[in-house]
Amino acid sequence: MNPISSIVFVLLLTVFPTQIFCQNLIDQACGYTSYKALCLSTLQSDSEAKKAKDLLTIAKVALKYTGKKAQDINKEIKKLQGSANDEGLKQALTDCAENYGDAIDQIQSSTTALASKKYNDVKTWVSAAMNDADSCEQGFEDQSVKSPIASSSTTFTQLSSNVLAITNHL
């Protein structure tokens, strides 16, 4: 290798190792999940995840996006409540608002547990939030109405599943 090539190679190693390491960490974390594409798109778009030095940081970022999704769904439910005319739909949306309110609280509890490295508590709270999302969707079925938030609920459940998978490796 000529001297200029050697210098360029060493410079590349000193400038880019963090980016290479972090990308590998994101790939590693997402490799544990069932919804890898969602995991990658979520984490690769986040500056904190890109700078992460450990899986704990990756899990925190994944949990942050899960909580944001629950909040977005809750806002969507409240908008839909204002315009619903069908009584069955109104009832299902009312139940969903309560379920997602609980899910938001559980994700916040998960965030606190993760910061304290109480990983079993994280799993318990995230699983409870997933159950709330399932209960919400079941409410639409029970009222024999189509869920207007089915796609969002599915994404929330997948994000939650990804958090659980990553947390299992901490």
Rank of each mutant, 00 (worst) to 15 (best):
T155V: 14
A115P: 00
E141S: 10
G67Y: 13
A62E: 13
I7F: 14
V8I: 15
N85S: 12
E137P: 02
S116W: 00
T94S: 14
K51L: 02
S151Q: 13
L56V: 06
K123S: 07
L43F: 05
Y32E: 10
S147H: 09
D102S: 10
N131Y: 01
Y65N: 08
K78C: 00
I77P: 07
K51S: 08
S144N: 13
Q143M: 10
L38G: 08
I26A: 12
Y119L: 11
Y32I: 01
V61R: 11
K51C: 00
K75E: 13
K51G: 00
S151F: 02
D95M: 03
Q71D: 08
L25S: 06
N162Q: 02
G139K: 05
K53R: 12
Q143E: 14
L170T: 09
D54H: 14
Q44P: 04
L80V: 08
V8S: 03
H169W: 04
T18I: 13
Q108V: 05
A128K: 11
I104M: 06
T42S: 11
A129Q: 01
C30Q: 13
Y100C: 00
L12F: 12
N131R: 05
N2C: 09
A115W: 00
A113L: 03
L159I: 12
A62R: 09
V8L: 12
F9T: 06
S5I: 09
M130A: 04
K69F: 05
G139L: 02
I7L: 15
N168C: 04
C22E: 13
I149E: 05
I58D: 10
V145S: 02
L164W: 11
S147V: 06
T155N: 10
A128F: 03
K53F: 13
L89M: 15
Y32V: 01
D46V: 02
